[in-house]
Design a protein around this nucleic acid. Sequence first.
DNA 1: AGCAAAACATATCATAGGTCAAGTTTTCTG
DNA 2: CAGAAAACTTGACCTATGATATGTTTTGCT
Lengths: 195, 195
Amino acid sequence: MTMQRPDELFLKRVFDYYFEAPLSVWATITPHLEHRTYKKNKVIKEAGQTEHNIDIIIKGSIGVFFWTDNHPRCIDLFYEDYFSCDYMSYIEAKPSELFVQVLETTDVFSISRTKIQELSEESLMGNKIIRAAAQSLFLHKQRQQIEMLTLTAEERYKKMLKEQPDRIHRTASKHIASYLGITPESLSRIRNKVS
Amino acid sequence: MTMQRPDELFLKRVFDYYFEAPLSVWATITPHLEHRTYKKNKVIKEAGQTEHNIDIIIKGSIGVFFWTDNHPRCIDLFYEDYFSCDYMSYIEAKPSELFVQVLETTDVFSISRTKIQELSEESLMGNKIIRAAAQSLFLHKQRQQIEMLTLTAEERYKKMLKEQPDRIHRTASKHIASYLGITPESLSRIRNKVS
DNA sequence: AGCAAAACATATCATAGGTCAAGTTTTCTG
DNA sequence: CAGAAAACTTGACCTATGATATGTTTTGCT
């Protein structure tokens, strides 16, 4: 994808599942999106900093982490056509312990809190879109929670392997392990056993 | 509390932490709230049903559960001055596997999806309030997730005991255990060890 | 008050997954 | 393209928590 300017169809496609709005609405938003390319491994938001942007991933992947002891722990993996940010810090507009790292060279459309506030101040529609995003992120979190309580590590891995095989193969094992809530050693054993 | 009619101060107090609005705004909402009293142990929303209301708890407590094998698992405990509902089902407006049970005789102000939609259709402010609620629920979920990954069962219990001793004592051990992600037996051992 | 049922406690044993340590393979970087 | 560093694998051992079983206390109901 060589797109440098967002077009309204892209936005519509990303949001359609959560929130349907006419093309004209997306067209009013697109001029406020900023195209960015992040290099692999770049930390785009450090722990202790405040998140000021929401990125919509065009291509690539981004992880949200925090440190425990000497290891980073991954609480979210985001891929194309989904939002990425430290939403906790974004909502509260204050620093969080989370950091955000780019996992592959990644293209995003980025929008700032300031722009979002403008859009949601001036239009009901803008506000509804933000709400839809917040709700989608909540759903994602709760589904994660239920999976964590319901499935064993092996079952979680198999599920991911079945539902998102491409993502498993694109993403470093250590991150997949961490996202699944286990150590790289445990994942290695599981992979060995499963395949 | 013998309140039968909500007053705007109540709403303001509940939301102030997340979203500040003038009293007049809360006054426009209060007429749409319905006062309800639920008896202890009542299941107010069964698994397989769709959630159509959001309750704001005045007094009492409510839990959100799902079934695994033969045991209910608790994913949320809500107390006074907070929202309670199966938000997953509410957002998607479709049935979920979750059920909602009253843990003590509980007073709430209840508002229906229909009313919420009306309010958020007609006013920007209404919409912002809903968004604030969605964000608050997201934050709560993410904090739960981080605690679960960071702390041992014993640490989680100690934290809750320290920060919300009244809640621990008001709520059945089996629910606390489930909420902390462990069995009642494990909690029993931990309590024995800690005290 | 008195009985049944549910909740809670305690003990024993089982196991998923963690920790540590020593390879091997892959990926960067000059 | 070589050497270093990082990622991944494998193995031995450990521990927190689950499962099961049984006993005790509390709660709820007529």
